[in-house]
Simulated scan of single mutants.
Amino acid sequence: MLEKLKSLLGMQPSLYARVGGGAAMDAAVDIFYRKVLDDSCIRYLFEDVDMDQQRAKQKRFLSMVCGGPDKFTGLQMREAHAHLLALGLNDEHFDHIMEHLRTSLESCGVKPPDLTQILDVAESFREDVLGR
């Protein structure tokens, strides 16, 4: 209702609304983790991860990135991924993750420039995730 009112007033809807809101976040994250867990290059990084909890964190994070109502309250990126560095986490892994995110969002109908905006934010975390 609020987004419709904003539209009538000539205001741009939020990125979160443009990509489909909570339902789109849920769908994109579910598709994303199916792709991640099917990827032989990176799935080992998730072997000891509670995937229900991981999906929930990722949905909150993606929602926050898109300006949605969820607030991400997880660990800082460096701290949250430090244990993965010991498993060999590197740029190749990050590239795989980015590609899975891109194709997951595309499959949910996210179009440029919204897709580019989301991917740019995700890319901005590379150095922290990789502990540099």
Results as ranks from 00 to 15, higher is better:
Asp70Pro: 10
Ser14Gly: 05
Leu5Glu: 08
Pro69Phe: 06
Phe94Arg: 06
Gln54Glu: 06
Thr116His: 03
Gly21Pro: 05
Ile118Pro: 08
Phe32Asp: 05
Phe32Ile: 06
Arg102Ser: 09
Pro69Leu: 04
Arg102Tyr: 00
Ala28Lys: 00
Gly68Asp: 07
Met25Asp: 01
Gln58Met: 12
Pro113Ser: 01
Gly20Gln: 04
Cys41Met: 13
Lys4Tyr: 14
Asp50Tyr: 03
Leu37Gly: 07
Leu2Arg: 13
Val121Pro: 11
Leu8Val: 11
Glu127Leu: 11
Gly131Phe: 04
Phe46Met: 07
Asp128Glu: 08
Thr73Asn: 10
Thr116Asp: 09
Leu119Cys: 06
Leu130Tyr: 01
Gly67Gln: 00
Met98Cys: 15
Ala82Lys: 11
Gln12Gly: 05
Arg18Asp: 04
Arg34Gln: 12
Gly74Val: 03
Ser63Phe: 02
Phe94Tyr: 08
Val110Tyr: 00
Gln76Asn: 12
Pro113Met: 01
Pro13Trp: 02
Val65Ser: 02
Tyr16Trp: 07
Val110Gly: 01
Leu105Met: 11
Lys4Gln: 10
Val129Leu: 06
Leu2Glu: 12
His93Asp: 01
Gly131Glu: 04
Glu79Lys: 09
Leu119Phe: 03
Ala56Ile: 06
Met98Tyr: 03
Met98Ile: 09
Arg55Lys: 12
Leu101Tyr: 07
Leu75Tyr: 06
Ser63Trp: 01
Asp95His: 09
Tyr33Lys: 04
Thr73Phe: 08
Arg60Ser: 11
Glu47Thr: 12
Pro69Lys: 02
His83Asn: 02
Phe72Cys: 03
Gly22Trp: 01
Gly109Val: 10
Gln54Thr: 02
